[in-house]
Write a protein that binds this DNA or RNA. Structure first.
Length: 378
DNA sequence: GTAGGGTTAG
């Protein structure tokens, strides 16, 4: 990143000293800033450039999309439309990608209609963007229709289709498509594996998930990343293999992130594993000290175990670090009530009684729910 | 002879 910034600064120097700046140099700068994450500077230059063509509009669109500025991307697309600028394929692909990210199925469908009305060829990029759009918007039938219509498909098209099936609960279809991908001889990468594991997770297929988790990296030289591990931890944990999930984290070659620990925490909640839950929450607090939610959960857990000294300790840490409490009624506040209510009583409180008392005090329970089978406040 | 823009996981 640091290196990238130096390079773009140097390019800017050269650009500023140039006597003749043509479309290509303007567009290169815009794209360079966008790629280095400085979307404001990219936008500024786009506003300043004297002429624009289909490539510079496309570069600006892509810049917005790749920096997660989807509303801005769609506004730019609208601007093109209003200004009578013919959208090139790149701008269309960008607009579709933004629709997918925002879940705007109808706008995406309008753009699809535009493509069809104007006989614009369904290229690999456009087809893939449409598959992604329909998949993310829950219309997996349309996604598969587009997949079938494409004359040419690449790895991304197959990956999008597998991902679309996976996220819509079509586990078998996702796995079938993966086998077909293997049979046809399309290259398989880490995104493919993410789709396959996500399908297994959605369908609760523990054995199959474990199989692909081992088979795909061995067979195709795919490197396992933290997302793959997160998926497996979730899959194992939900199915009740909480200790196996923990073991997997302990043997990760990469540092587990908050997604991985979060998946294990979810499993601890579902299966009532308090000891491990405490350990996981400590890790989460370490990883993300500003996230109040983790403190709240940790405090909750201590409160449930009657460890009031620890409840107080967590609150003190929150005060010291200056963690902002979420708006409204936090579980920390609830715990204060619990604490006061049970002050001096060192026996484990009957949590359902506490729940009743709180409901009485506050009229309603906004934040907490009580799961009698695990004894957890959620 | 040509230059600058692209889709997929989470």
């Amino acid at each position: 990143m640091y290196c990238k910034c130096l390079l773009i600064d140097h390019a800017r120097q050269v650009f500023d000293e140039m006597l003749e700046r043509d479309l290509v140099s303007w567009t290169s700068m815009i794209s360079g800033y966008a790629r280095s994450g400085d979307i404001e500077e990219a936008e500024l230059l786009f506003g300043l450039m004297p002429d624009r063509d289909v490539v510079s509009w496309g570069a600006m669109m892509t810049g917005f999309v790749q920096n997660g500025c989807h509303e801005e991307a769609l506004l730019l697309f609208r601007e093109m439309q209003m200004g009578g600028v013919w959208p090139g394929e790149v701008a269309i692909v960008g607009a579709l990608s933004s629709c997918a990210s925002l879940g705007l199925r109808s706008l995406g469908m309008w753009i699809h209609g535009f493509v069809v009305r104007h006989d614009i060829e369904l290229t690999v990029f456009m087809g893939t963007a449409l598959i992604d759009l329909y998949g993310k918007c829950g219309d997996v039938e349309s996604a598969y229709k587009v997949f079938g219509l494409m004359k040419e498909r690449n790895m991304a098209s197959w990956n999008s289709m597998i991902g679309g099936f996976a996220m819509n609960g079509k586990t078998k279809e996702a796995l079938r498509l993966f086998s077909e991908m293997e049979k046809v001889g399309i290259e398989i990468n880490s995104v493919t594996l993410s789709g396959v594991l996500s399908a297994c997770r959605h369908g609760g297929l523990v054995e199959e998930g474990c199989y692909y988790f081992q088979y795909v990296p061995r067979e195709y030289e795919v490197l396992l990343n933290v997302d793959h591990y997160g998926c497996m931890v979730d899959l194992l944990g939900r199915a009740g293999h909480v200790n196996e999930a923990f073991e997997l984290i302990n043997h990760m070659p990469v540092e587990p992130n908050e997604v991985v620990w979060g998946a294990l925490l979810g499993a601890c909640k579902i299966h009532g594993n308090l000891e491990l839950g405490e350990h996981v929450l400590k890790k989460l607090v370490e990883l993300d000290p500003q996230n109040s939610g983790n403190y709240v959960l940790l405090s909750n857990m201590y409160a449930m175990l009657g460890r009031w000294y620890d409840v107080e300790r967590v609150r003190a840490v929150m005060r010291d670090i200056g963690v902002e409490k979420p708006r409204g009624w936090s579980s920390i506040e609830v715990n204060t009530v619990v604490h006061e209510f049970y002050a001096g009583d060192w026996s484990h409180p009957d949590i359902s009684k506490v729940y009743e008392k709180l409901a009485e005090l506050h009229g309603k329970m906004e934040v907490l729910g009580y799961n009698p089978s695990t004894g957890l406040l959620v």
